[in-house]
Amino acid sequence: MMLYLRLYFEFFKTGLFSVGGGMATLPFLYAISDKTGWFSHELLADMVAVSESTPGPIGVNMATYVGYVTGGIPGALIATAGLVTPCCIIILLIAKALKAFRQNKYVDAAFYGLQPCSVGLIAAAGMLVLKISLFDFGLFGETGKLIDLFNFKAIVLAAILLICTRYVKKLKGLHPIVFIAASALVGIVFAF
């Protein structure tokens, strides 16, 4: 019972404070991971891939996935309900005064500060994914050799993906699922 209450509360908080949609929930999920130990950083990175390859809003997908992993099917339902409760309440409250809300100078000014904040938080969460995917701190800790710190296979793959998704005209418009599938194959073939 306590687990379900905490799941609801943590995702309620995520829904209330994550601004800007999509990846905005990521920093909050990392905070939940650090605080509760319900799931690892590795699992969270896998979850981003699953969310990018399945239908539906990424925030909802992540809540469902984390809820399921920590508390089974009831956990999935409760975490998702927690995430959407604040959105639902806020929208119902402001629905009548929609235009006035949008043009309110305080709301506008707050979002002027919130947008760079959201980008900064997502970028910081990205650093955590970088740390577990491109580096090998475990091996470096054992051997103390600088060369063991870098996961060279992964760095080469990252460079190729970066070029393909940003600069190759024919590829960059493709759905992320294509790149995720290709990376999975490369991971198996080259034994990452």
Binding site: E42, D46, V129, L185, F192
Partner: peptide
């Protein structure tokens, strides 16, 4: 191994 590869892709997507 597949997920180790996928995590690299997640870095780039983020």
């Amino acid at each position: 191994s597949a997920f180790a590869g996928i995590r690299v892709c997640v870095c780039v997507l983020i």
